[in-house]
Amino acid sequence: MFAVLAMTSFASVIAALTFGSVPIGIGNVVETIVLGTPGLSHDVIWNLRAPRAFAAYACGGLLALASTLLQVLLRNALADPYVLGVSGGASLGALLALSLGAGVAVMNASAFAGAIGAIVVVFGLTYRAGDWNVYRLLLTGVVLSAGLSAMISLTLVLAPEAQVKGMLFWLMGDLSQGDAPLSAWIVLGALMALSLVVSLQLDLITLGELKARSLGVAVIPLQMGIFAAAALATVTAVVLGGAIGFIGLMSPHAIRLAGVTHHRALVPLAVMLGGSLLTIADTAARTVWAPQQLPVGIVTALLGVPAMLLLLGKQR
C-alpha cells in the first residue's frame, strides 16, 4: 500500500508538471527535469507548475493529517479540518483583507490571524479552570463556525463588487497564490514526525478516554497536543489554498476502508493520499476549462462527493 501510494504521489506530481496551457510532452518533462535543459519548458515547469504542484501536495497532505488527528480527538469519523472553526476564522480574515483591496501578503497574514483568533477563542472557551472536555470543544467549534459563516456572508454582501469574484474564489479553495510551499512542507514534515512518535497513543485514545488512561496514556496533554497539531496543519493549509473541502474528510476514510486502521501506517498513508488527490484535482482545475481556471474546491467537491457516497455505501 505504501508502494502504491508512493507511485500515485509521484504520478500526480508528474501529471501536474505535464498538463497545462502550454503543451509540453511527458518526454520533454522528463528530459527537462533530468537534464535541466534551459528553455521555455524549463521556465514553465520550474517557475509555474512545480511550485503549484508542491503547494497542492503539501496542502492536501496537511488537510488529510489534520482530519486524521481530529477524527481521533473527537472519536468521530465525520470530523474534518474545518469542524473547529479554523477555516471560518481564516476565511473571514482573508475576505476582510480582500474587500479592502489588500495584496496577497496582507491577505495571507490576515487569514493567518483570523485562524489563530478562532483557535484561541475555541480553546479559551473550552479550557476553563483546568476543565477540559472534548464534547465542549466540538460544540464550541461548530457554534463559532456558524457565527463566522454569517460574518463571511455579511462581508461578501458589503464588499465592493470588483472584489467579490476573488473572494468567492478564495472561499472555494484556490491554489493559484501558492507561491511559498516550503514552509508548508516543513510544517507537514514536523507534524507528521510528531504524529508518528505518538502513533501508539493515537490508537489507544480511540478506545475512550478512561480506558486510555487506565493503559497509561496521558490523555489530556495528548488531546491538547492533537488539537494544537491539527489546528496548525489546518491554518497552514488554509493560508496556502483557501477552504478546500472533502480532501481531509475523505483521505483517512479511504485508507481505513482499505483495512489500515493503526495510526503508524494510517497517518503517512492518509497524508500521501490527500496530497496526491489534491495535486490531481488542482491539475484538473487548471486544465479542464482552460484557459479559465476553476477553484480547486469545486473539483474536489465534484469528485469527492460521489467518491465519498460510494465508499459509505460499501461500508458494512
Partner: peptide, 23 residues
C-alpha cells in the same frame, strides 16, 4: 507514572465507549 502503573493494574470498565476501527 501511569505507564508503569498500567503494567501492574489492568482495568475493565463497565462502559468502554470507544470508536474502534481496527480488527
Amino acid at each position: 507514572g501511569a505507564r508503569a502503573r498500567a503494567r501492574i493494574v489492568g482495568v475493565l470498565l463497565q462502559i468502554e465507549d470507544g470508536t474502534y476501527w481496527g480488527t
